[in-house]
Design a protein around this nucleic acid. Structure first.
Lengths: 151, 151
DNA sequence: CAAAATATTAAAATGAGTATAAATTTATAT
DNA sequence: ATATAAATTTATACTCATTTTAATATTTTG
């Protein structure tokens, strides 16, 4: 059994634009066309895309979109805490609309980023510190790439 | 190599240039003034500096040093696996000459990066994957900054 | 609907990091 | 110690992701 399968089995239905409108309202996020579409892309595709990937995909559908908007909107979503940043590779920021505590594995063969379930984590020596964020990033090869020797 | 482990486990506080020369020889790393000084800075200061910080500090002592040398040398050390990259913040690569498995906490008050001891980590759903690297990065506040309300 | 507030655009700026070719340093063989 | 070849370093120019700016457009509010 693979991780990807486990996550797919979780019955998460696709969000409609109205679901997102409601979610934005709950989080005091002003509505605009691009905010709705960018969030929709993140929450429904779940591929942990970079800003550039989001721009490239949405540009097809919304030709007047500019890269700056994608970057600004993602930064705004981070401030509002409705998305989290994924940084496995330090030269590319990726984004995830799933807020639960989990790790990320980047396959060095195909570049895909997989979610990793963290069953247990125990840290030492943090007495007196206050922790706001935890990020676990792995690098390796996915079963597909191992099978096809794509590396 | 046989001697590498012995050296790694040596209870030596500060490394001398001769210690580093020996260590380089064991790892088949050619010696040069800058390589010695850059590694010395990493291993003795243990502040998880960025390339820019290393450049700025060493420039005082070695005025002809150029930034490219610092970047190239760090990349070379990574290839030779005598240092590891630390990425808590995805827009700044930091480096650590300690190779043991541990996490890093960046204080959002003072910007210092602290080592975090990982007592236990259990991941799920990685059957069929091959893992090469694991990185744990935390963001929070250190006791000093909490006390002085520097945030 | 009009005014005010906020979002978006396109372009320029920034900043980390890389590539390159010429100059310098290092390892080695004399 | 010196000559030589190989590797490293410098300086510069570049790339690429992201941010900022200032003008324009859209959304919200009265």
């Amino acid at each position: 059994m693979r991780l990807a399968k486990e996550l797919k089995e979780m019955p998460k239905k696709r969000w409609t634009l109205d679901d997102i409108r409601e979610y934005f309202a709950q989080h005091e996020i002003r509505i605009s066309v691009y905010r709705l579409k960018i969030f929709e892309y993140l929450i429904n595709e779940r591929t942990h895309p970079t800003a550039e990937e989001i721009y490239r995909q949405l540009k097809k559908e919304l030709p007047s979109l500019s890269p700056g908007t994608v970057y600004n909107t993602l930064r705004y979503f981070l401030e509002k805490k409705i998305i989290q940043q994924v940084n496995v590779e330090n030269n590319e920021a990726r984004y995830d609309a799933t807020l639960s505590w989990h790790g990320h594995l980047k396959c060095l063969g195909c570049g895909k980023v997989f979610d990793v379930h963290i069953e247990n984590l125990k840290l030492g020596g943090l007495e007196g510190f206050e922790i706001f964020e935890k990020h676990l990033g792995l690098k390796g090869l996915c079963p597909e790439c191992l099978k096809r020797k794509k590396y």
